[in-house]
Design a binder for these strands. Structure first.
Lengths: 206, 206, 206, 206
DNA sequence: CATGAATGAGAATTCATTCAT
DNA sequence: CATGAATGAATTCTCATTCAT
């Protein structure tokens, strides 16, 4: 009659705690004590459930990625096969993160890329997600280009551009709040996507 | 006969040191000792020339901003009054940072927005620069829209979108190297700018 | 119907676990969790069977001592009353620890003296055993000296010397493996014992 | 006009502090704070002068080894070429450690072998010293055997035996104080050396 | 008896900042 | 101005011990 296992719930509490702290502080400033306090747990328990601090960040990245992908899946189901609708589903999945109930997630995501650039363990799930998204976007964009009778060789680059714009919207939203009007992000990103795929604009930038 | 003043040179050495260290580590991980070593100076000297560590970051932000604005000024002179050329000058000024000799500056800039979001002192010069650029871009974009007979009310939002995309290109370049093909950033950004300003795309995103 | 008692078996499992862990780590580095894992038990159970961590070490010392004395008893039975044979039985009992199946015990023993020097509770059984062995050795050595017509006043000192050499063989075997050739320890120790008891060598060291 | 360098003196203070603490506690129990207090320094300074705690131990080992070798050199000069005298010089160099002013060094040395067995960095200087001493002892013992017309093939093993006995005298002196009478160690060890080299004893241990 | 979660004190280590020279 | 030593608080991590089940 041992105490029932609750590792999954505790790990979730702790990653939530990190997300809350990272809404105000950087990952480096998020002390284990602050995370534990935000999670309502003793500090020793954090290291009982996680090997080290970085492992919490990795788990948080995995959770945020899974959440984003779940949002996208939900919207893709409604989009059917229309390639523009599929692109919009992608953008909306990210923009909805902003609109939805989890402001901590937004603040975190804008910081995670930087941590990934310096910490190989964090880079693994981050980069895997980015590559997955880049592949999916490239396919959707190629479908758009094909439907419009254009060559598809610019699809990968255009997908990278849209990813960059999405990431940038998160970052700018954190670093310079108010510059992007509330609710404007999704429309902005869709217009940029259209610019990336437009035949007219193809010659811009030589 | 007083020793000749060399404060300006020393401050430059030290901000350079910070930039070098921040190419590999986050600001939080950049210790004063590491900065001093990268600058080729004794560690005690750092606090003689700077009140505290954050002041170095502020000075670095100011220097990077000044550099970017100098690049833009140089290109604007060549652009004359053509509004599209002025927009391209903006994009090129940032993209050139990438192409130019200073990879440390690129790595730093992608990190500075995050620090600005958490540190009021850093936010001051960062936000001032972003606001300045946003105003200039808004004006340039309004000029484009006017020239094309469109209403200018979307100019501010479009300017925010382009800024976001520029920032995003820096961030994605650091966090997921290789996703954006080398040399492709400027063209990508210009196409996105055209998308933001296109009459056709105006209805995208409802 | 009460659950059958298994305390003795559990205590044995746990002291075995400590011995295994101490073959690789020092006592200080042997955590309760590691001991429990090596014993194949849950960590909470350790403190059910032992008051505290040090009690495990004390129990282990008692077990190793009992094992050594059992080996000596077995060999003494074969040695009869011949004083040289009794001395050899002592040496062989220790050297056999080395040759026998329990390398963990060897590694432990070389560490236990050090712990005994710092922890009174551990010192109690350790010191008692050493004193017992010293007394037995002194008697055996006195018998040898008497048989050879020499005075017995050097017996106690000689016994201490042999004990030191035995301990030293364990320590050196751990700290500098290979210095003592495999299988050479027993012969070496017996020759040293003869040196300690030799009439010729009596004047050495003034 | 910088503050004068005093790193060497500080490192010496700190290794002395470790030696003092290790007279009462094991290395594992010797906290940085305790070492710093024993050295009369702030705890932060310890890590300014040493990379980490283990580096202090390594430096201490090197210092103790150097001290022992200096003692031996001094005695060797007086011993001339007489092989017995050279052997006695070795034993006396170690036994004098006991008699001399530094009881902390004795307590440390008895512990260092154990640490060396578990920590590769500590093993390097320890093992190097042991190998050096083993080589020197082997040569001296071979000279003795040659002078007495015996074959020299047992010299290396005899040297290992004497080293073991010396180490054992340190350990037993710590773990069971009083067993070895004060001042008796050197004579004991010399008699054991004679036993190891005696023609009569050669057949002992079969 | 048994399990594994929980606690909290203490350990090593880092580092911005201050100071003596 | 400049150097590098010194300080002490903060941080991550470990772990014996206790507890709920």
């Amino acid at each position: 009659m041992p105490r029932p296992r609750n590792t999954a719930a505790r790990r979730r509490q702790i990653t939530d705690g990190l997300a809350q702290v990272m809404a105000d502080k950087s990952y480096g400033q998020a002390s284990i004590n602050a995370i534990a306090k935000a999670a309502g747990l003793g500090s020793g328990l954090v290291h009982y459930h996680f090997e080290n601090k970085q492992a919490i960040l990795v788990a948080l990245v995995e959770r945020l990625v899974a959440g984003l992908e779940a949002r996208r899946e939900a919207r893709l189901a409604a989009a059917g096969d229309d390639p523009w609708a599929r692109l919009d589903a992608f953008v909306d999945a990210f923009a909805a993160l902003d609109a939805d109930a989890d402001p901590a997630a937004v603040a975190c995501w804008s910081r995670i890329g930087d941590e990934a650039a310096r910490r190989p363990e964090v880079a693994v799930p981050y980069r895997a997600a980015v590559d997955r998204w880049h592949g999916a976007l490239t396919a959707d964009m190629a479908a758009v280009l094909t439907a419009e009778g254009q060559p598809t060789d610019r699809a990968a680059e255009a997908a990278a551009g849209l990813l960059a714009a999405i990431e940038g919207a998160f970052h700018l939203g954190q670093a310079a709040p108010g510059i992007i009007p509330a609710g404007a992000a999704a429309g902005m990103l869709k217009r940029m996507a259209r610019g990336l795929l437009s035949a007219d604009a193809a010659e811009a930038g030589r």
